[in-house]
């Protein structure tokens, strides 16, 4: 039995450049996560690599294209493709975003900001419900990295809490996004943590961010292109003190380093989970 079956452990976002290393890695509790959209192909080596890696390590699917925060219902064809991947890979968790990315027949390939109105909440809950019902699985919803402050009617923590209440979904708490949103918009991260249902957090993401090239320190960008910053590590400690240890993912999408560099970050997160897991969960 794997450690990850017993207690929450740390994993790594899987990139094609690291397939062979991932297949050979044997760290206790190591798991991987991929974007299902990259595996929506008919056949070929990409699917076979993932088959082989899934034989050894738990896998989680983290979608970026369902556009749950859009005005329309989830695309049935996209749900069908998701469903086929779930059958093939039996993921331990599935997740999506509080974001939108499609309108009419255009896909923007980015996580776009949801204007959090009461109507948007109704539509978002409807869409989460459709996704969960079609896939027969609980979906974890990730908090966004925010850059602009829209004239919302409710705030993000309440929006997420209400979505959990109405749909029974879980949360994917992206610590880097929380740090970025707090920095860029002046949100109080500790207050946010007090107001989300911490018991619903089923996964945590850690990633690196970068300072905006033209606006400097005032604006942090969620690039997944750097090592995890010290304030994000500190916020991670605060988060797991509140939620208890949860499966935690190291995400890296650009400036991809050697697999060993990611394993080292992953081991740091694992050490935190193990250390803090020995204490009883606290409330912040």
């Amino acid at each position: 039995m794997l450690l990850s079956d017993l207690s929450p452990s740390a994993g790594i976002g899987l990139k094609p450049e690291h397939y062979r290393s991932a297949l050979e890695a044997r760290a206790d509790g190591l798991w991987f996560e991929v974007h299902p959209e990259n595996y929506m192909v008919e056949g070929g080596p990409r699917l076979r690599w993932l088959d082989a890696i899934r034989e050894i390590h738990p896998l989680s699917l983290h979608g970026v294209a369902m556009s749950l925060g859009g005005p329309d219902r989830p695309d049935p064809a996209h749900l069908d493709r998701w469903s086929r991947l779930i059958s093939r890979y039996q993921p331990v968790r599935i997740s999506e975003h509080l974001a939108w990315s499609a309108l009419d027949d255009i896909w923007f390939a980015d996580l776009l900001p949801v204007r959090m109105t009461r109507m948007a909440l109704d539509r978002f809950c409807r869409n989460v419900d459709i996704m969960q019902t079609r896939l027969g699985r609980q979906v974890l919803i990730e908090n966004p990295a925010r850059y602009v402050w829209l004239n919302d009617e409710c705030d993000e923590a309440d929006f997420l809490a209400e979505t959990v209440k109405r749909t029974g979904c879980g949360l994917l708490l992206d610590v880097n996004n929380l740090h970025i949103s707090a920095h860029n918009l002046g949100i109080d991260a500790r207050d946010w943590l007090r107001r989300i249902p911490v018991g619903a957090v089923g996964e945590i993401h850690l990633a690196g961010h970068e300072v905006d090239s033209s606006m400097g320190e005032a604006l942090l960008i969620d690039t997944h292109g750097a090592e995890i910053a010290p304030p994000v590590w500190r916020l991670f400690e605060t988060v797991i003190a509140a939620t208890g240890p949860r499966p935690t993912l190291i995400e890296r999408d650009t400036h991809l380093p050697d697999f060993n560099v990611l394993i080292a970050e992953r081991d740091l997160a694992q050490a935190q989970l193990t250390r803090l897991g020995k204490r009883a969960p606290l409330h912040v």
Binding site: F108, A109, D110, L112, P113, R115, Y147, V148, W149, L150, N151, N184, D212, S214, M215, L219, I221
Partner: peptide
């Protein structure tokens, strides 16, 4: 739709990402 007018320049992030 922006609470702070100065956020208008930040919209470039989404334009560039897309």
């Amino acid at each position: 739709y922006l609470v702070r007018r100065r956020d208008a320049a930040r919209l470039a992030i989404y334009q560039n990402n897309v």
